[in-house]
Structures are given as C-alpha cells and as structure tokens.
Amino acid sequence: MTPTRKYNSSLLIRLHLVCIAAVSLLFVACTAQKAGSNKAMNQKEDVLQVLRQTNAYFMKKWPDTKEPIYTTRWRPSNIWTRAVYYEGLMALYAIDPKIGYYRYADDWANQHQWNMRNGVETRNADDQACGQIYLDLYQIDKQPIKIKAIKENIDGIIASGKVDDWTWIDAIQMAMPIFAKFGSMYNDPKYYDYMHRMYLYSRNEEGGGLYNTEDKLWWRDKDFVPPYQEPNGEDCYWSRGNGWVVAALVRVLNLLPQDHPNRAFYEQDFKDMMHALLKVQRADGFWNVSLHDPTNFTGPETSGTALFVYGMAWGINQGILDQTEFTEPMHRAWQGMVQDAVHPSGFLGFLQGTGKEPKDGQPVRFSSVPDFEDYGLGCFLLAGAEYYKYLSKN
C-alpha cells in the first residue's frame, strides 16, 4: 500500500512563486542582453551610415581624382590635404569594403603615376604623405610601380644622413608612418631606426625641442616655443597640430613590432598626450583650436577633435588606454561631431582651414567652408572607422 503524503499548500505556493520569479529574471536578463546587443548594433550602423554619408558628399563633389585643387592658386591633388582624405578612405574601406572606395583611391594614385608633387628628390613631408596611400594600395595589389617612387624617395632620405626635415609637427604625421610601413613590409630595422632619429630631432632639438615634457603637448614649430604666449598667458598648443602627432603615433604603433626597443617610448608619449588632452576637452565633446586658451578663437573645431577621437578609440582597442577613463570622453566627442558638425548633405562644419595656429582659417563656424575640405573629412573617417571597431569589440 502506497503511503499517503501530506503536502503543505503554502509551501507549494511559495515554491511556485519562486519559480515564476526565476523565470522572469531569466527573461529580463536575456531581453536586456538582446537589447544591449541590438543597441550596440544600431550604434555601429549609425556610425557606418554617417561615414558613408560624409564620404559620399565628397566623392560626388570631386568625381575627377586628378582635378587640381583651387583656393588662392591651383595645386595638384596629390598634396597632403588630399592624401589625408585617402588615409581616411582606406580606413573606411577596411570596415566597409566597397569596390567604389578602392577604385577611387587607386584611380587617384594612377592619375599621379604613383609619384609625389615634387618628384622623388623631395624632402618635404607634405609631398611624401601620398606615399602612405600608395603603400596601402600596394599591399592590396602588389605591383612594383606603386611603391617605386616613394621607396626611392625614402631610401634617399636615409642615405643623406640628414634628420632635420620635420621642422613642424604636422610633418610627423605626413611622413613618419611611411618609414614604419617600409620597416614592416621588409622587416628592415633601418627604416625604424631612421624614423626614430627624425622623430627625436623634432621632439628634442628643433627650436630647442617642440615637445613640452611638462605639459605633454607639442608646439607647432619653433615660432611658438616660449616666450611666445597666447592672450591668456599660456603656451600655444594648436589643436590640429597635436592631433597630427597623435595620428602619427597611432599609425606607427600599429606597425611597430611588439618587442621593438623603441615601442615603449612611443607608447609613453602617446599615453602622456592623451591624458593631457583629457584635461582640456570641452563640455560639448569638442576641443578648442587653442588647447590651453579657450578664449582665443573659442568654439568647436572638428579636425583636431576627430584626430583625438581616433587616438582614444585606437588606444582603448589596443588596451593601451584605460577604458574606464577614456570611453565617456570618446563617446562625447564622437556624438558632439555627429550632432553639431555633420550637415544633412554630408558636409562637415566647424572645420578650421589650413594654417598653423588658432587664428588661421577663421571664422570656424557650422556653415563656414574651409579652403580645403578634404583633410578634415579624412580625419573624421579615421576617427569613425576606429570608433566602429570599438563598438564591434564592445
């Protein structure tokens, strides 16, 4: 005979409620995870959409890749401003591999016979900047003609023994990554060694040294080394100029072997700069053109801001920058640019024109058109592509 079991009805009710609660919590957790995943995906798609939008504006405006650029005079389209744009386009191509992007870059290089504005004898970093794109395109389709001129140029620089070409900090971004690319491609330390000598000359010797080891920021060139001062008595640290150095360090560190003896040196400069920049970010996410004098031509500026976002996103992605410290400022800067600088047409506002200090290219307004539109978009594409990678990882 089966024994009779007595059940406590209140206990059963409590057990039933516990089970319902557990299932509910599991449902909420799964829903939240799915919502978080969808939100991240939406953010990624939003980033990609604005990159496509801004780039489409430019490609539509400049369908002929060889067309010279006219501002105060005619300039060939393989100068540094257009080269920086193509750096950004190749970064976009890496996350959104549309054949039209590749063809637009390859056609531009072909139209200029894979050469520089002043030929293989030039020592001007502004001329050499196009070489970064030629090398990117060569690594996709290894035809020797693509790197013949730029390799001859860089090998000639090394053979000369002169290391004092980079007398303004923009030059570090225009030329230094080319040495790193050749060092990586050929596994040849001479390229790494020579670029380090040139970097050290700019950092420590030109004008007494263009890097201020106290403030962890760079003077644009010797004209701005103290006693030069901004109106508020501070040193003049130009936003985009410091952005060029950030971008150069990112692009070099991306290529330099992990065990290279100079890697820690560049990483320290990079980290020190990024921490210094955190202190002077605006509440709206942007940086002013004058980093230590917000009263001198104050207001948002897109190109410097974009280069700093590029650095922050890359540093977080590589584990070099502390995610808890840099993520919010990075988000704020990206959102500031998208909300306040991007026009519905894809045109970028708040972009300072060419120059070397806060007063150049003014006024910088939402609707003002800079003398060159290309480099600002290049900076924005670099930032957005790296930010997209961050969202993909997180």
Rank of each mutant, 00 (worst) to 15 (best):
L307C: 07
L307F: 13
R332E: 04
I316H: 01
P294D: 13
R332V: 02
M312C: 04
T327E: 09
G315P: 05
F308C: 01
A306L: 01
A313K: 13
Y310W: 12
T302K: 09
R332I: 00
V309E: 04
T298K: 15
D293M: 07
V338W: 14
E301L: 05
E301D: 04
R332K: 15
P294S: 14
S303Q: 09
N296D: 15
T324C: 00
M312Y: 10
G319C: 03
D340V: 00
Q335G: 06
A341P: 07
F308H: 09
V338M: 14
G311Y: 11
D340I: 02
N317T: 11
A333T: 02
N317F: 04
D340Q: 13
L321R: 00
A333Q: 07
V338L: 14
G319Q: 03
H292R: 11
F297N: 12
V342A: 10
E301C: 06
H292C: 08
Y310A: 05
E325V: 15
T324F: 02
M312E: 02
D293T: 06
L321E: 00
W314A: 01
E325F: 01
T295I: 07
V342N: 10
T298D: 14
E328Y: 12
F297R: 07
T305H: 05
Y310R: 07
T298R: 14
A333H: 02
P294Y: 10
Q339A: 13
P294T: 13
H292A: 04
L321H: 02
A306G: 05
T295V: 10
A313T: 15
F326N: 04
Q323C: 01
D293H: 04
M312Q: 07
V309Q: 05
A341I: 06
T298I: 03
P329R: 15
E325M: 11
P300A: 10
G319V: 05
P294W: 12
E325N: 01
T295E: 06
G315V: 14
T295D: 01
L321A: 01
D293L: 06
A313L: 10
G311K: 11
H292T: 13
Q339E: 14
P294G: 12
G299H: 08
V338F: 11
I320H: 01
W334G: 02
N296R: 13
V342Y: 12
H331E: 14
L321F: 02
M312T: 10
I320F: 01
A313S: 14
G315I: 14
